[in-house]
């Protein structure tokens, strides 16, 4: 528990944003936050698919090359890490204090 006051973060209010019985139409910002959480949930699935992909390289004749494997895996690994960074930063960064000007409340 960090000391003192701090700005609210999405991770702190996630449970409210994530509630199941929410209205059909949400404010733009809330909608965006829910999609961000969806992204956080989907990311490991994407990772799993990417990591299992080399299994499809096996053919009846050819054995995949180690060099190709090294490059493929480290590149996807780095991409996954970057995606995790972007999502995590928005989930745990301070929330904007006020809705942006011209924010519409009735966006689906």
């Amino acid at each position: 528990m960090s000391e003192g006051k701090r700005a609210a973060r999405l991770i702190d209010i996630a449970d409210e944003v994530d509630a199941e019985n929410i209205p059909l139409f949400l404010a733009h910002q809330t909608y965006k936050r829910r999609r961000l959480m969806d992204a956080a949930r989907l990311l490991p699935l994407l990772g799993l698919v990417l990591m299992m992909f080399p299994l499809l390289w096996l053919g009846p004749e050819n054995e995949p090359r180690t060099a190709t494997g090294v490059i493929y895996i480290f590149v996807t690994w780095a991409v996954l890490t970057l995606a995790a960074y972007l999502i995590a930063r928005r989930l745990s960064g301070p929330l904007p204090s006020e809705p942006e000007a011209g924010e519409r409340d009735d966006v689906v």
Partner: peptide, 21 residues
């Protein structure tokens, strides 16, 4: 065994990137 050692790190990577779950 070649690249198999990577599995030891890829599993935790998936768990950590899926931290929200």
């Amino acid at each position: 065994s070649g690249l198999e050692y990577l599995t030891i790190y890829l599993g935790p990577t998936l768990v950590l990137t899926g931290w929200w779950l």
